[in-house]
Design a protein around this nucleic acid. Structure first.
Length: 534
DNA sequence: ATAGGGTTAG
């Protein structure tokens, strides 16, 4: 009997477990493993661990499969140390780990960002010949290297495993290809893709193609996206909901919501079942403010709302992200009441808002002249996690500043020191622009000199804020110094600031000799600056 | 062991 055929939900599994434990004699370990596997597949990790504990009480024998499943559950819950405890429990009962056990543990360490420990374990396994690494283990280590930005080493390890006679497979390659795409190194990814296909004869799958499509979409290389989609068709590899949701998301970011909806419909027409993720992408598209009037924004919010309700109608549940997107959209068109209602509704459905949701709500309130409400929400509802998030602080500081509550701005900024939460470049920029708004240029200048000392380098926005602030306040003595610093740091100056500078030169409040320097800071026309920032 | 969604400044 195949257990997974009769277990439909957690309830079934638990009932079956009870029934199994009462049988005389007890069912075999294989059947218990199947049950644990089923519970784990449903992502009820802590439940699997509980069942495992009960098995021990009942003296159901366990084998390496049992141990592997339970270790996996520990790791998925980010409790890898408990996974190691299960490993030593196994040793005590003469259940010895295999390559799968160690791969799972390595994966858990990487999941918890403990790559150095993973690396040490991996080397130890090889050196002491505790197990022969297979493609899964190598791929796991390669994933870790990629995760910590070490694509080059990942590629070296790929070569090394091949030399050692362990053949990389489509997963190994896809891992690196995806990582390269995420770092915008799509050409390197395409090179590796060709190596995989033409030199190693490994066939790409939908995951490989989806990663490439993602990378190309991010760089707006649409022709090549088309080419990949055609190639997939030739290879008879159908795009799935993942692939489509990347296409939908990218079209939305381009402001082409109608096209995105078209792709969404096409996907359904092709027999794919939409999930919450792709709904969220599309709803976000309808909520984004493009270059349109508030009238059209309100119309689009209606469509977003319609899609939002469609999720429930189709038997799915909106998640924290769905609610966050909807709330943000509603605040943007000034429908605060409905936004707040949704904020309460999500909690009524036991969806816990995270720091991003809070940030959205706080920003929405601030932008709609409700700073006090935002602050009381922040102090009354915010837990440790929310109130230790620098972005949330930045939002509040900016909101208070724009609403003329500068005493609150100072309070919030000082609170960061008390909490030991380091301000980031956004915080400094927000504060500096707040000082200008308040007309206290001395403090703006002071904070600018201070930020570098406190380990936060200014960025191009900092210089923009400073230049525009000084120009508006007829303070010209800092301008040349700022422009020179920008040149030194390789920043360019934006159109608005340039035109302000030129106005001041025309009015002779700035010396014309600055023109040469300004000319060097203007990005060359027709060249996409993004090509160079990668 | 590999792929998808939501936050801030000008």
């Amino acid at each position: 009997m195949k257990l997974f055929l009769i277990i439909l939900d957690l309830d079934d599994a638990l009932k079956l477990f009870d029934e199994m434990t009462q049988r005389q004699p007890l069912p075999s370990v294989v059947q218990f493993n199947q049950l644990l596997q089923a519970v784990t597949k449903m992502k009820h990790y802590s439940c699997s661990i509980d069942l495992f504990k009960q098995m021990n009480v009942l003296r159901v024998p366990v084998d390496v499969y049992t141990v592997n499943i339970v270790i996996k559950c520990c790791c998925q819950m980010h409790h890898t140390n408990e996974g190691f405890a299960v490993l030593s429990y196994g040793f005590k009962r003469a259940v010895f780990p295999d390559v799968y056990t160690f791969s799972t543990l390595l994966n858990g360490l990487i999941l918890e960002d403990r790559f150095l420990i993973a690396e040490r374990l991996f080397k130890k396994l090889i050196k002491e010949e505790l197990c022969e690494p297979n493609a899964i283990m190598y791929s796991t280590m390669i994933k870790g290297l990629c995760k910590f930005g070490n694509n080059d080493t990942a590629i070296s390890l790929l070569k090394l495993m091949d030399e050692k006679g362990c053949k990389p497979n489509v997963v190994t390659y896809s891992t690196i290809i995806d990582s390269l795409c995420k770092e915008k190194m799509v050409d390197d990814a395409l090179k590796l893709f060709k190596e995989m296909v033409f030199h190693k004869g490994i066939l790409p799958n939908v995951v490989t193609y989806t990663s490439l499509i993602h990378g190309l979409c991010n760089l707006c290389r649409w022709d090549e996206v088309d080419k990949i989609l055609k190639e997939m068709e030739e290879q008879r590899i159908s795009p799935n909901v993942h692939t489509f949701s990347i296409l939908v998301g990218s079209l939305c970011k381009e402001g082409k919501v109608k096209d995105a909806k078209g792709v969404f419909n096409l996907m359904i027409q092709k027999g794919n079942v939409p999930n919450v993720v792709i709904y969220n992408s599309l709803i976000d598209g309808y909520c984004l403010r493009g270059e349109m009037s508030i009238y059209f924004m309100k119309l689009k919010i209606e469509e977003a709302m319609h899609l939002f309700h469609e999720i429930t109608k189709k038997g799915m549940k909106p998640d924290v992200i769905t609610y966050s997107i909807m709330i943000q959209g509603l605040f943007r068109v000034g429908r605060c009441k409905v936004a707040e209602e949704l904020f309460y509704e999500m909690r009524a459905h036991s969806l816990n808002p995270d720091e991003i949701t809070y940030g959205i709500v706080l920003e929405g309130l601030c932008n709609n002249n409700q700073v006090e409400k935002a602050l009381s929400l922040f102090y009354l509802m915010g837990d440790n996690k929310l109130n230790s998030n620098i972005i949330v602080y930045n939002i509040l500081i900016d909101g208070a500043s724009k609403n003329g509550k500068f005493d609150i701005v100072r309070n919030l900024f000082n609170e960061l020191t008390v909490k030991g939460l380091p301000p980031d470049v956004w915080t400094y920029n927000t504060m500096i622009s707040g000082f200008f708004r308040e007309g206290v240029m001395g403090e703006a200048k002071e904070l600018f000199f201070e930020m570098e000392k406190r380990g936060c380098s200014p960025n191009d926005v900092t210089y923009r804020v400073l230049l525009q602030g000084f120009l508006k306040n007829q303070q010209h003595d800092m301008v040349e110094m700022l422009l020179l610093e920008m040149k030194g740091r390789g920043f360019s100056v934006d159109a608005t600031t340039v035109s302000m500078l030129l106005d001041h030169i025309k009015a002779r409040s700035l010396d014309a000799s600055l023109l040469k320097l300004i000319g060097k800071l203007v990005p060359k026309e027709g060249v996409d600056a993004h090509c160079f920032t990668v």
